[in-house]
Simulated assay, not measured.
Amino acid sequence: MSSATDAPADAATARDRAKAERRAALLTAAAQLFAERGFPRVSLDDLGAAAGVSGPAVYKHFASKQAVLAAILVGASEGLLAGGRAVVAGAASDRAALEGLVAFHVDFALGNADIIRVQDHDLDSLADDDRHTVRALQREYVELWVDVLARLRPADARPALRTRAHACFGLINSTPHSSRVGARAARSILESMALAALTA
């Protein structure tokens, strides 16, 4: 049985949840608009309208339009690195780790086409510190793959393995621009092609 003192806490939790949901909706809308129009051609009013709030209400969640862009791109890079680390940590073998990384990245690409487009077109619109953060996170993510490849291909130099990893990302990340076959077919094609490229 809840007491009267639980009510304020429950209300605060509901408010926090609603705020988090609104923030997530703004980021989803922003990624779609930035992908379609490009960062410079989207206003805060556009973002608010797409998420069902007024333009000024966006400031309750983000200090500026550039902060929205940073939340999208830094957040995506943080998510990739954390997810990649979890895949490797939970894998029973190096081969399983590589297969898991490929499947993880394919899932990301198929589920976040707008973010990949924004990354391609608008990375340079980030503030310098945010851009450096994204690049540093991306380098760590690449090296995670290279570490796994190095255990599977000990005779290969790390620069060569890094080239393989980047080529694999290029293959997988091209899907938002070219895939028309449906997610299930695209996933199968991409995973088999990526593994073949990495292990050839």
Rank of each mutant, 00 (worst) to 15 (best):
T175F: 11
L152F: 02
T163W: 08
R139L: 10
G84T: 00
A109R: 06
S174L: 10
S174E: 00
A31E: 01
I116E: 06
T133Y: 02
A76P: 05
A150C: 01
A29I: 06
R158M: 00
P56A: 14
H121R: 14
T175N: 11
H105E: 15
R135H: 06
L190S: 04
A25N: 14
F169G: 03
A29D: 10
A89S: 15
D129C: 05
W145Y: 11
V74T: 14
K65S: 02
T199E: 15
G38C: 01
G90K: 12
E36G: 07
Q119C: 06
H166K: 11
E143C: 05
V74W: 02
D107V: 09
R37A: 04
N173F: 13
R180N: 11
D94H: 12
S3N: 09
A186Y: 09
E140L: 11
C168G: 08
V146A: 03
P159D: 05
D107W: 05
L144H: 03
V74G: 01
G170F: 08
I172G: 03
D120H: 12
L190R: 09
L126R: 01
L149C: 00
F34N: 01
L123N: 01
A183P: 08
D124A: 09
V88A: 12
D94W: 11
A200Y: 08
S125I: 04
